[in-house]
Design a protein around this nucleic acid. Structure first.
Lengths: 219, 219
DNA sequence: TGTCGTGGAGACAGATCTGTCTCCTTGTCG
DNA sequence: CGACAAGGAGACAGATCTGTCTCCACGACA
């Protein structure tokens, strides 16, 4: 395996484990075992666990935003349609098995103290997402794209958290003991989480229409 | 000190520390030292750390919801005014020094796996908050109080997370080293976090008015 | 005054964590 | 073929974590 391949393997494993279990809860040894990489290799690429976390967040940032935007653009061609498609893409995300909320929000929850690079990475991610929504708002002709974008971003953020907290856990991952009611519960779980996205979408529609109407009524 | 006083002292300390640093990051010994209580006493009251966390969340749940509702009701008498006051109360909360986001959301981030009592406590908290908002929506005469409440709850949730992630850290707590720019930065921080609440409030106004207008136009 | 429950202080076990270091294998390139 | 860098496996140090246990002080009450 090539030098850089190991690095990516390490980061991918770290992303998966941190997303699922949290940051403090996942030890270095666990990541190493899952990635099939030795400790020496890890510390050759990253100076410390914090640096690994930071690199993982950065990689996830790029990958997530890229996929998100591509999916939004695949779903609709018009700016207004794309603004609404944001919430459809979110619904798909929520219904995935490996949905554990927003990695960045969870990271800030664990690294709240002080102004660490980890916090900065999280702020940057949210700012970029907001900027993308703002671009869509501007293309849609909103008179105050920044304001509308801030409102829609709030709805999206709220939907993510609500889907994370309210949705039951997937169950599939919890171990060898099968739950009694785990028959069709998977899809029921997905449905309950997807509802947050639907609610956000219907609220977004109201806000978008109101903003665009206000823009149209102006000289 | 009385038996039950020690228990409450323990819980209050735990709430403060968990909120600020997270759950895995705070060890038992730290809580004991801050609370001025011995290890024996802790394990007399709680079987394990998880049980302490659960008890802390439950106590915080009651205290927070109580204070929140009292403040909302002190700010406005009419149901519609109270729905909006929710976001003013949130703004005050965000601007407090000891604001570190929602304890429950952070808890779910760290205990995502499996269906633990901790997860359940978090879900219950969010459900109760939503129910309170739904009651206000019903009193305000919304034709579909559950739908409007879900939308407003999403906005509130989004504002909490956004205030937590986007807002700089307070600084005051970070140690003996004073930051160079810590002169009036405290209020600037509070202002940046309060903006999320303002955005949510203006969006809420649109959603509420639209819902109430739809209700008035119906037989 | 003697007894008993409560709690403080902390030693201790056993596990786990991060980060370093050694020993050995493997693959690559001159 | 020979040198050398990369990596695997894992021992190790030192810290920290949870949870149990002992020893002792103190106060309430018969």
């Amino acid at each position: 395996m090539r030098h850089s391949q190991r690095r990516e393997q390490l980061l991918d494993t770290a992303i998966t484990l941190f997303a699922r279990h949290g940051y403090h809860a996942v030890g270095i040894d666990t990541i190493l075992k899952c990635a099939g990489v030795s400790k020496k290799t890890l510390y050759r690429h990253f100076r410390s666990k914090d640096e690994l976390i930071l690199a993982a967040l950065r990689k996830y940032d790029g990958r997530f935003r890229n996929a998100f935007m591509r999916q939004v653009e695949a779903r609709a061609a018009e700016p207004r349609g794309r603004l609404l498609a944001v919430f459809d893409v979110a619904a798909d995300w929520f219904e995935a098995d490996n949905f554990y909320g927003c990695m960045f929000v969870n990271a800030v929850g664990e690294y709240a103290e002080a102004e660490t690079p980890i916090r900065r990475a999280c702020r940057d991610f949210k700012a970029e997402m907001r900027r993308y929504i703002e671009d869509l708002c501007r293309q849609a002709g909103a008179p105050e794209p920044a304001t509308l974008a801030a409102e829609l971003a709030l709805l999206l953020e709220g939907a993510i958290v609500t889907a994370q907290v309210s949705g039951q856990v997937s169950g599939r991952v919890s171990g060898p003991v099968a739950h009694a009611e785990s028959g069709a519960s998977g899809s029921r779980v997905a449905e309950s989480r997807g509802r947050a996205a639907e609610t956000a979408k219907s609220a977004a529609k109201v806000l978008i229409d109101q903003a665009l109407a206000a823009g149209a009524g102006r000289p």
